[in-house]
Amino acid sequence: MAQTTQDIRIGWIGLGEMGYGMAKNLHAYLASHGSHLTVWNRSPGKTDAIKEQGAHVAISIENLASTSNVIFTSLANDAAVENVYEQLVQLASKVQEQIIFVDTSTIHPSTATKISQLVAAYPQHRYLQCPVFGRPDRAHAAQLVWVASGDAATIEKLQPYFGSMSKNTIDLRTTDVSKASSFKLMGNFFVVGTIELLAEGLALAEKVDIDKSAMLQFIESFFPTPSWIGYSQKMASGSTEKAGGFPVTLGLKDVGHMRKLAADHGAALPTADVAYKNLEKLKAQGKGDQDWSSIIEVLREGPEAQK
């Protein structure tokens, strides 16, 4: 590593399905170099598993901030990110030693800009926006795709830590952190577009009584990618479980962000518009905790459900 373990003291905030997988791998990397990760989560019970692996648990966000000079965050939505960073920046404002903040959350570009401006008020500190691509199983396997934006020297400094959690890093080579958030939303557009396309096609196949196994064989032969195969198998099996996936509620948040991004820049995302309506229907039916591939349930209802 470029620095000794005494130089780098890493903290982690947010131990949801994605955050825990990333934090687990980062802690294992640190432990292999004679150090440890310090974690804090708003729901204390979620720290138990990583504590058993040797990570330290901060008693408060103040405690974590006072013992860390690199702080990673993995949070569910923009409101949570703003709340946590308002606290972190207030605490950091009293510290002369540099603190590097790395947010891995999927947020609207304007939120990333707002957080960057908060941190920039204290020039000794740095803020990177580094969203990640991959489902929770990929996070656990350290196979995420990491996206980096912010100060180039800081990104270079943290590359070993990014590498402990991902299979590769896409460095956008810009200090404009909003670009990473935009990039993540565009990537997620391709994912939700895939889900909508598969749901429409498989729902039609069911209506005309095409054998499911034959359709899955076709998809595996012509579109042999993890997302196509995984989502088509999930839909064909009738599974709606969120475990290891992505809930309708967060899907609505992400698709809402990408639609706003498109509108703000004079672009059109008709596929996202359709997917958003279908996700809204699922939420209205009390299915907000189901995996967002449950879009196929709405399509199975037929044309009337699309009005």
Rank of each mutant, 00 (worst) to 15 (best):
H33L: 10
K283R: 11
T194F: 03
L216N: 02
L261F: 02
M215F: 07
V95Q: 14
G34L: 12
G11N: 09
N25K: 09
T47N: 09
L282N: 09
L64D: 08
K287T: 06
G302D: 10
I100H: 02
I61N: 07
V89M: 12
Y127K: 08
A203Q: 05
I115G: 01
A55W: 04
T175N: 05
H33G: 01
K212D: 13
V95L: 13
S68D: 15
H56M: 12
A275R: 03
L216A: 02
N83T: 11
H108I: 00
Q87E: 14
V208M: 12
Y276T: 08
V70P: 02
G251M: 11
L185P: 01
G230K: 08
F218W: 10
Q290A: 15
I100C: 07
R135W: 07
D289V: 10
A262G: 03
A112L: 00
D273Y: 01
A55F: 05
G256V: 04
D264P: 03
S239H: 04
T249E: 05
E280Q: 15
L30C: 08
E206T: 14
G238V: 11
G14C: 04
E97A: 12
W40T: 13
L299W: 12
R173W: 00
P131E: 00
D137F: 11
L75F: 00
